[in-house]
Amino acid sequence: MALSDADVQKQIKHMMAFIEQEASEKAEEIDAKAEEEFNIEKGRLVQTQRVKIMEYYEKKDKQIEQHKKIQMSNLMNQARLKVLKARDDMITDLVNDARLRLTDIAKDPARYSTILEGLVLQGFYQLLEPKVTVRCRKQDVEMVQAAVDKNIPIYKSAVKSNIVVKIDQERFLPSDICGGVEVYNDNGKIRVCNTLESRLDLIAQQMMPEIRVALFGANPNRKFTD
């Protein structure tokens, strides 16, 4: 039995509705899968970027911390250098003050003559030469001569050897020094500098550890004191 036009149209509509339903369901399935894949990829990208951002700021934090450590180290070094310079300046001022007081020694003839005797005799012992020349300030010639005369027999008795001493009357030590003598061997190539200034410098150098301890206390980082 042949289908009527109405039946054909009805079947066609039914088939079209079925196809549309299938297409709609397929489209929804594709949309859902696409949405899922999109969310997965979005999550992956977000996590990747989050890790990159965390790594970036972690690196920045480390750089800032390192920079802070370097700055702190530089500041501590600068402060330490300033402290050391201040201490050195204080010691220099102390030595300079002592140097200024050396002028008072020569103003006391009795005290100064005793010091000259010791300086002259020490020069003899250091040189151990048969002939020596003593140089002094022009104003000290008479006092130095007395010191020489007193020390010659002392030296002879101690070393069992003769000594001829000449006081240089042509070249004197500068008048602006505080006093003392210089003792030379016969050809003038060996010198013993026993001026008051040189003795002060030597004593200051030898006593520098004690001076530092007296002024600033013992260094807690120093393991040995020898």
Rank of each mutant, 00 (worst) to 15 (best):
S4R: 06
D7L: 11
V8N: 09
Q11F: 15
A17M: 09
I19Y: 09
Q21E: 15
A23P: 00
E29K: 14
E29M: 12
D31G: 04
A32K: 15
E36D: 13
I40W: 04
I40D: 12
E41S: 15
K42C: 03
Q49R: 15
R50Y: 08
I53T: 09
Y56R: 10
E58T: 07
K59N: 07
K68D: 06
S73A: 12
M76W: 06
R80I: 08
R80H: 14
K82V: 07
K85I: 03
A86V: 03
A86M: 13
A86F: 06
A86D: 14
D89L: 09
I91S: 02
T92L: 12
D93N: 13
V95K: 07
N96A: 11
L100Y: 04
L102I: 06
L102F: 03
T103L: 10
D104T: 07
I105D: 02
P109R: 04
P109C: 04
P109G: 02
R111I: 08
S113A: 15
T114Y: 08
E117C: 08
G118V: 00
G118P: 00
L121E: 06
L121F: 12
G123P: 03
L128M: 12
T133Q: 05
V134L: 01
C136V: 09
C136I: 02
K138P: 07
M143R: 13
V144L: 02
A146Y: 00
A147F: 01
V148G: 01
D149N: 14
I152S: 03
S161P: 10
S161G: 15
S161M: 15
N162G: 14
V164P: 01
I167G: 00
E170C: 00
R171V: 08
I177V: 08
C178F: 07
V181M: 01
E182S: 07
D186C: 03
G188S: 05
K189T: 10
K189D: 10
I190A: 12
V192W: 00
N194E: 00
S198V: 02
D201H: 01
L202V: 05
I203R: 05
Q205D: 08
M207W: 03
P209V: 05
I211V: 12
R212P: 02
R212T: 05
A214K: 10
L215S: 04
F216V: 03
G217Q: 01
N221F: 14
R222K: 13
